[in-house]
Design a protein around this nucleic acid. Structure first.
Length: 467
DNA sequence: TTTTGAGTTGTTCGA
DNA sequence: GTCGAACAACTCAAA
């Protein structure tokens, strides 16, 4: 047998990796390679934090591979050319990779497959696009029937163990990883991802069992925080689903069972949007329904800047945007509130927000991010009621009841009393003095009046529907 | 082909 | 304070 290449893309792990396993089964020697693709790293949708997380993940993967007698080979350049060069150096007979269904990845893989024997195995989704279809063979476009069908299908086998040893040819040059930007701020790598997964799903009272009740609370750490690890395959979909099922079986109460069920359905949402992007790649450019939603966006640059910088004057929106800027991550409930504010209150094209999120998020994933923004904008797969406009004050009161989330990220408001925290402009002069926070000086006045903005959004959406 | 039931995450208003 | 209705019309999925 000749050598094989394991082409790592968004599966930075050695466990439960079908591409690696098949490469090992096909050849005596396997060369793991990651290609730093300038088309991806320099794209409009890349961000420094995610690049740093990727780099640190690649370092962790290299260390893991070295413990198994191998190492990671890094190459720069266009994948087709870089891989062809490497294959020639190695005399490699085959090239194995996990599938990636995003539009760019499919074009890239087609170019590679034209030059090299590329074998795609498995997928970032547990059930790859094409595996969940309606009776007539068409893809689902509504979540609930999709998830019903998804659950009916037989469970694939248990996740694969990591191979104990990987024999890799010596003397193959590896080019360096980028030094900048400095740090992702998130511990990267498979070991860290697996640790987080266990911490969320295992033990006597795992957080997953409280997930149904607490997941919307922005002031708690009640979510799995696994999104960056799933994004880069440091945790596989199969591993996440297996852990969720075990937590479901172990759940002692109705409520804890529901927690595991809800988290499982969130994983199915992830699969749904991967399928949507694969079957309907035009969603990357615009509305899922092309004929729908010719909305007269205001696209006000000043409002957009205020949103990005967390100075809209709406505390929960500003907290969310500052959390994003500071950490590269945002609570899911906060994502909906911030997105709704941009799209509905400021009437800015959802694609502006989508791009900003992709540039900022450590977990930025084209499928999930696009699906989420289209959902908020009401242009996506579900027939969302046009009148669904989040009220940032109500959402804050409901999902950050003591204001700990706002106080954490918006320091100017630290001394504002609970009852005023989510609408600080309602403070009297005396209250502002007492709180050490003068509206318009220490903290911005609202950039837009929500009641007025809501009416404007309903009108704009009404026109969009009629035209 | 036709029909029927249903559709993530919301807000406001009036009783 | 709580509760139910209203907020449009349309598309999808499945029988």
């Amino acid at each position: 047998m000749s050598g094989a290449i394991w082409w790592v893309r968004r599966d930075l792990r050695t466990s439960d990796n079908a591409a690696l396993a098949e490469a090992l089964a096909s050849a005596d020697e396997v060369a793991p390679v990651f290609v730093l693709d300038p088309a991806l790293l320099g794209s409009d949708y890349a961000g420094p934090r995610r690049v740093a997380f990727l780099r640190e993940g690649l370092r962790a993967l290299d260390a893991d591979l070295r413990a198994r007698g191998s190492r990671l080979i890094v190459r720069h350049g266009r994948p087709a050319e870089a891989l062809a060069r490497l294959a020639a150096e190695l005399g490699a007979g085959s090239l194995w990779a996990e599938e990636d269904h995003s539009p760019y990845a499919r074009r890239r893989d087609a170019l590679v497959a034209a030059m090299l024997p590329l074998r795609l195995t498995s997928s970032p989704a547990l059930r790859p696009p094409g595996a969940v279809l309606k009776a007539d063979g068409a893809p689902y476009t509504v979540y609930t029937p999709f998830s019903r069908r998804w659950r009916e299908l037989p469970w694939p086998g248990e996740p694969l163990p990591a191979p104990a040893r990987i024999a890799t040819p010596e003397g193959i040059e590896s080019e360096g990883l980028p030094e900048e930007p400095a740090s992702a701020g998130w511990p990267a790598g498979e070991a860290e991802g697996q640790r987080q997964l266990r911490a969320f799903c295992e033990g006597p009272e795992p957080p997953i069992h409280r997930y149904a009740e607490e997941r919307d609370r922005m002031d708690l750490e009640a979510t799995s925080q696994l999104s960056p690890y799933l994004r880069f395959g440091m945790v596989s979909a199969g591993q996440a689903f297996a852990a969720a099922r075990r937590a479901l079986e172990a759940a002692p109460t109705v409520e804890s069972r529901r927690g595991a069920e809800v988290w499982l359905s969130e994983l199915i949402w992830r699969e749904f949007y991967i399928h949507i992007l694969a079957h309907f790649p035009h969603v990357r450019e615009g509305s899922f329904r092309p004929e729908l939603r010719e909305i007269a966006w205001a696209n006000d640059q000043e409002g957009f800047d205020a949103w990005r910088e967390g100075r809209t004057g709406y505390p929960v929106v500003d907290a969310a945007m500052r959390q994003l800027a500071a950490t590269g991550w945002m609570h899911n409930r906060a994502r909906m509130i911030a997105a709704s504010f941009l799209v509905k209150d400021l009437l800015v094209d959802w694609r502006w927000g989508e791009r900003w999120f992709m540039q900022q998020l450590v977990d930025g994933d084209p499928a999930a991010n696009n699906g989420g923004w289209q959902w908020t904008a009401g242009t996506g797969t579900d027939a969302a009621p046009y009148f669904r406009v989040f009220n940032p004050v109500l959402q804050g009161q409901r999902y950050d009841p003591e204001g700990a989330y706002v106080r954490r990220w918006v320091g100017e408001l630290a001394c504002v009393p609970d009852g005023r925290l989510h609408a600080p402009w309602e403070m009297s002069d005396a209250e502002q003095r007492a709180a050490g926070c003068r509206i318009g000086r220490d903290y911005p006045a609202p950039v837009v009046d929500h009641a007025w903005a809501r009416a404007r959004a309903l009108a704009a959406y009404g026109r969009g529907r009629a035209s």
